[in-house]
Write a protein that binds this DNA or RNA. Structure first.
Length: 125
RNA sequence: GCAGUAAAUCGCCUUAUCGCUGUUUUGGUUUAUUCAAAAUGGAGGAAAGUCCGAACACCGUAGUGCAACAUAGUGGCUAAUAACCACCAGCCGUGAGGUUAGGAAAAGUGCAACAGAAAGUAUGUACAGGUCAUGCUGUAGUGAAACCAGGUAAACUCUAUGUGGUGCAAUGUCAUGUAAACCAACGUUUGAGGGCGGCACGCUCGAUUGUUGGAGGGUAGGCAGCUAAAGUGUAUUGGUAACAAUGCAUGUAGAUAAAUGAUAAGGGCUUUUUUAGCAAUAAAAAAGUACAGAAUUCGGCUUAUAGAUUUACUUAAAUA
């Protein structure tokens, strides 16, 4: 299975991010929130994903970096499960909206719940 | 020894699994590019605050005066500074040392607790003297000071010196687009209007123009800038020192919604408790292991910081 999370899979385009936040929909499983948008891009990928932590809740850069790394790690290890049924291209942004520093265990379980919610919402349509 | 002063240094380590990113090489596909493999590099003493000073870049006629701001003992050092070093002076400490907002009070203005009638365009009381008359004069009393001066410039002020502005989201370039494009209105050669972002003088552009509005396009994509740095380490020489010169060695992050990690196991270190022991110490358990993340680059300053180490020095009182 593929556990990589390379440069191409990261959401980097400022335009796309702006579009994501203005037009995208969201689901949440506290302390996580997922903003998603069906879109298309040139590369042969299912998803482009970014992570973000509010500066308001975590003042020092060290804490924010730590949480973002945990989010990326959880995404990297579990993404193959998430996208089994997904066929169209999507852009994702995972936000951490909690106020306490998490552990990897918590982040992983919450992220699984989060993507289950997401896929059920997608399949409703 | 305890206690204290100053300076300097370090600021977790190892292994395994799975990952991120720069560079180089090889291979495949190729205009570019992209993919795979291998090798190798990948956060700090403060990377932080952005408080000073520079490099570098652009704007600019950056010239004079005013304003504004900054600095303020003497000498030195430096690319430069308000930093740094040495010395003098004041103050604090028993001392090692620390600290200073250390130019000017007869240019002017302001300010001053308590006491006191009054601290200044003042004059009460008592006594004495004097006058045509009057706080006109003296003494007593309050106070550091009673009209004569003095203090205060982390009060205005004055003096001397210095300062053009904006900051790598600078700036250049490639791609896209293409445009000094188009439409309308207004203005003007005894010159409309604009630029020099504090003000004035002054300078300067000015019909292939200026302003306003419309419509339309663009709006942080790539590359360069970007990391060889007034670099780092070390030795010698000169200097009280900051620092300088010379020799030798070394080549050390470049991300951009922003890499430098995640998890597990083990080991250090510190503290506490328990057990054994006269003690040094040993064993076990638990807890802790800080502050904090490069963003153009340097030199300082300031602030945060668990814990550890080294060197030099001090000792009034109290204990041994």
């Amino acid at each position: 299975m593929n556990y990589t999370y390379g440069n191409k899979e990261k959401l980097k385009s400022k335009k796309l991010i702006d579009q994501l936040f203005t037009e995208g929909k969201s689901v949440s499983a506290y302390p996580l929130r997922l903003v998603y948008l069906g879109t298309t891009f040139n590369e042969d990928l299912i998803a482009k994903t970014g992570v973000s932590v509010s500066k308001r809740n975590f003042k020092t850069a060290v804490d924010r970096n730590r949480i973002k790394r945990l989010l990326r790690e959880a995404y990297r290890l579990n993404k193959s499960i998430f996208f089994n049924n997904l066929t169209t291209q999507h852009a994702f942004m995972i936000l951490y909206i909690g106020k306490d520093k998490p552990t990897l265990d918590v982040v992983e379980t919450k992220m699984k719940i989060l993507f289950e919610k997401f896929s059920s919402k997608i399949s409703e349509k």
